[in-house]
């Protein structure tokens, strides 16, 4: 098991955002985490990246307990994230943003940079443009590319489709598939449940800080409750 989240509880002040979340990600998988607004998806990813401390529970990554490991050290351990809202450094150029992904690493990163530019030709055309002046879709590509530059074993993606036109969403999802096929494990948080379930191998449904369903993604696509709650009733599924 590459990533194991064991019964974690996380609080903002006195408010409990996660009330016992357990999930697992196997090497090579795409796992998706779906749920309504405020369910705790972002908090789960932040906890895995060490941005929020755990009140209780454990996170085990690649065989080691990282529950107490500082956030910046988890990057070197192999956890990369493209956060909600993208978190682009607005005053840095595209290339500087990408190189920030290699900040913690010593040695060469030429290869990774070339690979990111190959994956996102749009970024390559705009190397010297400031991050803050990029369009939403471009920023999302930059956020994913930057996370890839950390050379992650698992890539955490927090709503990469947010605010994007349908065509662009399809394109981003296609790239996520490509990244996975090249060998990176993916944990994908999505509102866009339909497309996420079509892409992922397995899925978890989060509700008010708890996992209420865990199943194969294809199974959840046919689950009447999930269809009613997250897939807009009986929208056609192919």
């Amino acid at each position: 098991m590459l990533l194991e989240v064991r019964d974690i509880h996380v609080h903002y002040g006195k408010i409990a955002a996660l009330k016992g979340v357990t999930l697992e990600v196997e090497e090579g998988e795409i796992v998706t985490l779906i749920g309504a607004n405020g369910a705790g998806k972002t908090t789960t990813l932040k906890s895995i990246s060490g941005l929020r401390p755990l009140t209780s529970g454990r996170i085990v990554f690649d065989g080691t307990d990282i529950s107490k490991l500082q956030g910046h050290k988890r990057v070197l351990a192999g956890i990369g994230q493209a956060p909600e809202g993208r978190g682009i450094f607005p005053g840095m150029t595209v290339q500087e943003n990408l190189l920030m992904g290699a900040y913690a690493r010593k040695g060469t990163f030429r290869e990774e940079l070339d690979e990111v530019y190959e994956l996102f030709p749009r970024l390559s055309e705009r190397r010297t443009q400031f991050g803050g002046t990029m369009s939403g879709g471009e920023q999302q590509m930059l956020a994913i590319g930057r996370a890839l530059m950390t050379n992650p074993k698992v890539l955490l993606l927090d709503e990469p489709s947010m605010g994007l036109a349908p065509m662009l969403v399809a394109q981003i999802f296609e790239i996520v598939r490509e990244i996975n096929q090249r060998g990176t494990t993916v944990l994908l948080v999505e509102q866009n449940a339909m497309q996420a379930l079509q892409l992922a191998h397995r899925a978890y449904v989060l509700e008010s800080g708890r996992v209420v369903k865990a199943a194969d993604a294809s199974g959840l696509l046919d689950d009447p409750e999930v269809r009613a709650a997250y897939l807009g009733g009986d929208l056609g599924v192919d």
Binding site: K46, H72, M100
Partner: peptide
């Protein structure tokens, strides 16, 4: 490199941590 860490933190501290910057 030190300066890049400072600029990243000033622009977005959470994203900086996700890049491995020790805040």
């Amino acid at each position: 490199r030190v300066g890049r860490g400072i600029r990243a933190t000033a622009q977005d501290p959470e994203a900086a941590v996700l890049m491995g910057v020790n805040i």
